[in-house]
Design a protein around this nucleic acid. Sequence first.
RNA 1: GUCCCCAUCGUCUAGUGGCCUAGGACGCUGCCCUUUCAAGGCGGAAGCACGGGUUCGAAUCCCGUUGGGGGCACCA
Length: 473
Amino acid sequence: MSVRCRFAPAPSGSLHVGNVRSALFSWLWARHNGGAFVLRVEDTDTSRVTEEAFLGVLEDLRWLGLDWDEGPQVGGPNAPYRQSQRGDHYDESLATLLAAGHAYRCYCSAEELEERREASRSRGEAPGYDGRCRSLATEQIAAYEAEGRAPVVRFRMPDGEQVIHDLVKGEVRWAAGELRDFVIVRADGSPVFLLAVAVDDLAMGVTHVVRGDDLLAAAPRNVAVIEALGGTPPVYAHVPQVVGPDRKPLSKRHGSTSVQAFREQGFLPEAMVNYLALLGWSPGDDRERMTRDELIVAFDLSRVSSNPAAFDTEKLTWLNNHYIQSLDDDDLAARCVHFLVEAGVGVDPVVLRQAMPLVKERMKTLAEVVELLRFLFSDDIELNDKAMGILAKAPDGYLKAAAGALDACPGWDAEQISHALDGLAQGAGLNRTKGWQPIRAAVTGSNVSPPLPESLALLGRERTLERVRAAEG
RNA sequence: GUCCCCAUCGUCUAGUGGCCUAGGACGCUGCCCUUUCAAGGCGGAAGCACGGGUUCGAAUCCCGUUGGGGGCACCA
């Protein structure tokens, strides 16, 4: 049987990197096995779902290159792929479960349940549902109905020990009676996650469920429902949570951990995918920088680590720089445009393209292109403090001499500019560092810039001279 | 409270009883290269949570302790 993996996010706007890693592992496993990757959106909680949030999730996955074979915008034999549109499937399964006695109506009110939970808690017992409505007499049901109570539907957990053979966690057991009967349909008739997931995984022929280990305890419940429906449960792989630097599960508290935030900061999808793949998984050898195809070949769910991994932006950043360096100049320039425009910097595409070799090993994120190259596209140069300091320390008349030397430079390419600058520095008795910094400060407004001669060559002689002369005063 | 999961450098990891004087990577750090900043090259510091076993031998197996995390919802 061919492998079918799925990713089933709640539509949250933008996925956070922990979710994305689950999606990535699921996708890698599908691709590794030449199987299918199914996307299903868990939007049963219709009250808080917006169309924008739904589209945001799809956008994130597309940007990362995690393509799906079945799902929203793509279709497939099991459409629709939004749980909010699959009510008839749940109704049908519910009828089956009820008819076979695998589920029953529970009339306990929220207050009654809470009261009994507290009582068992104070007795030191597990606080779950006590099974009171498991086998109600007909008269009792009639009495509840007469009271106007609206029942929920609970799933009757099978007796006996429950065992999950998890690809990551190994064999996990729950003693008989530990897993209580849980609600599968609310009093208002809407299906709960635990029903919807089981019904959908079964209907969609999912063979492997890869998800966060916060859902580990849901697995035996999922299995029980699927088996009650006469199906064969999938294999589960519960990957550990991604945690923040403080070792707490990733949340809003850790700031911008959404895919969208990383994208806006100028991280490449190639870097995100590579980094996330390494978070909790390794190929078993020393490889770290791996292409998408290499990851697909090497990926193995059984090699996923079973302990939580801390998200390390530093390492992501290192990989991002690596991928920026590996892009060809046209590609890199195209990706930079957005960030320059966003920063209000007008761009000359030809010059931008020519500037790429100067900045690619200096950029940790695409967003940094703005500070690196602003001086090329804007003549409105503001000197930073260090630049002012450098200019203040330059010998008297040095900038005037610089203007003269550059004006006299026979040709305007990096090599000849470099030669002219050397002549200038030597004439003033300065080494390159001391001799070139004032020019850098005057022209770029900063003590730090891409290589100077190449930068001046791109800037052009006239604009260079204007800035050097302006800095004199 | 109870059940479950987890525990190798600061971080991600390799390691599945002898190959471990615990390997790699990020970060940190020294040197080299160098027009600034990077990038790059070559070095360095840094770890098996603790306590008991099992074994000729344990990072690796078992038990316990401690410390994290998750479940026990008409949330997903």
